[in-house]
C-alpha cells in the first residue's frame, strides 16, 4: 500500500503553539495499533470517569463503540471508501473513512450531485474536550474536513461533502466548518445531517489559510 504523507499543523493546547503533524491518505496497520494500544485504554479511563461522576450513559461518546480494525478490514481494497489519518508526535491523533460513491447531495441547490460523505471520523480521546480538559491537540477535525474537501475537489465534486454528526460535534460542523444543518435524519439513528456546498467549502479553506 502506497501512502502519501502531507505536512499539516495542529495546535498544542498545553504549550500554546503550533505542532508539526502529518496527514496520511490511509488508515494503516500502524493507526490500528495506535487505536488498540493508545486510544482504547484512554477511552476506557475517560468513560470510567464519566460513569463515576454520574454522567448518564446516553451522554457518553457514541464513537466508543466503533471498532476501527473491523471497519478497515471490511473496507480493505474498496475503492469507494478511502481513509485518512493525522499523526503527530509519532502517534495517531485522528482517523476518518469516507464514501465517495454511494451518497448524493440533499441540499436543494445541489440535489443529486456527487459528494464525499464522511462515514466515520474520530479524534484520539486525549484530544476531545468533552473527555479531557484541556485537550492535548486541537485542529484535527479541521485537518480531516479539509482532506475530505480536497478529495471532493480532486474527484470533481467541487468540495461538496456531507455527514451525519454525533451530538457532541454538531456545533463544530455548523459553526467552525460553516456547513448547512439539514436537521435530524429519522432514517439515521436520529442524528443531524450536515452538508457543505462548493461555496461553503471555499469559505472554509479560505478561513484556514488566513494568517
Amino acid at each position: 500500500m502506497t501512502v502519501t504523507v502531507s505536512p499539516v499543523y495542529l495546535f498544542d493546547v498545553q504549550r500554546g503553539e503550533a505542532a508539526a503533524a502529518e496527514l496520511w491518505d490511509a488508515v494503516t496497520e500502524r493507526q490500528l495499533a495506535d487505536w488498540e494500544a493508545e486510544w482504547l485504554p484512554e477511552l476506557f479511563n475517560a468513560i470510567q470517569r464519566l460513569h463515576r461522576a454520574g454522567v448518564e450513559r446516553r451522554l457518553w461518546p457514541q464513537s466508543r463503540q466503533w471498532n476501527w480494525r473491523r471497519k478497515v478490514q471490511v473496507l480493505q481494497g474498496v475503492l469507494a471508501h478511502p481513509g485518512f489519518s493525522v499523526v503527530c508526535e509519532n502517534v495517531t491523533q485522528g482517523m476518518m473513512i469516507v464514501d465517495t460513491t454511494t451518497k448524493r447531495c440533499r441540499i436543494e441547490s445541489q440535489k443529486g450531485q456527487h459528494l464525499v460523505y464522511v462515514e466515520f471520523v474520530a479524534n484520539a480521546p486525549w484530544n476531545r474536550p468533552e473527555l479531557v480538559s484541556p485537550p492535548r491537540f486541537r485542529g484535527i477535525g479541521s485537518v480531516l474536513i479539509r482532506a475530505a474537501i480536497a478529495l471532493s475537489q480532486e474527484e470533481e465534486f467541487k468540495g461538496r461533502i456531507g455527514l451525519h454528526s454525533l451530538p457532541q460535534a454538531n456545533s463544530f460542523y455548523a459553526n467552525t466548518c460553516g456547513m448547512t444543518d439539514l436537521g435530524v435524519d429519522p432514517n439515521y439513528e436520529g442524528l443531524r445531517y450536515f452538508e457543505m456546498t462548493p461555496e461553503q467549502a471555499e469559505a472554509f479553506i479560505a478561513k484556514g489559510n488566513q494568517p
Binding site: 474498496v78 475503492l79 460513491t101 470533481e156 467541487k158
Partner: peptide, 17 residues
C-alpha cells in the same frame, strides 16, 4: 458536471460496491 475520467472512475467504484 464531471469529466469522462471522473465519471468512469465513479462507475468503477460503484460496480465494485
Amino acid at each position: 458536471d464531471l469529466s469522462k475520467t471522473a465519471l468512469l472512475r465513479q462507475a468503477l467504484r460503484l460496480y465494485q460496491v
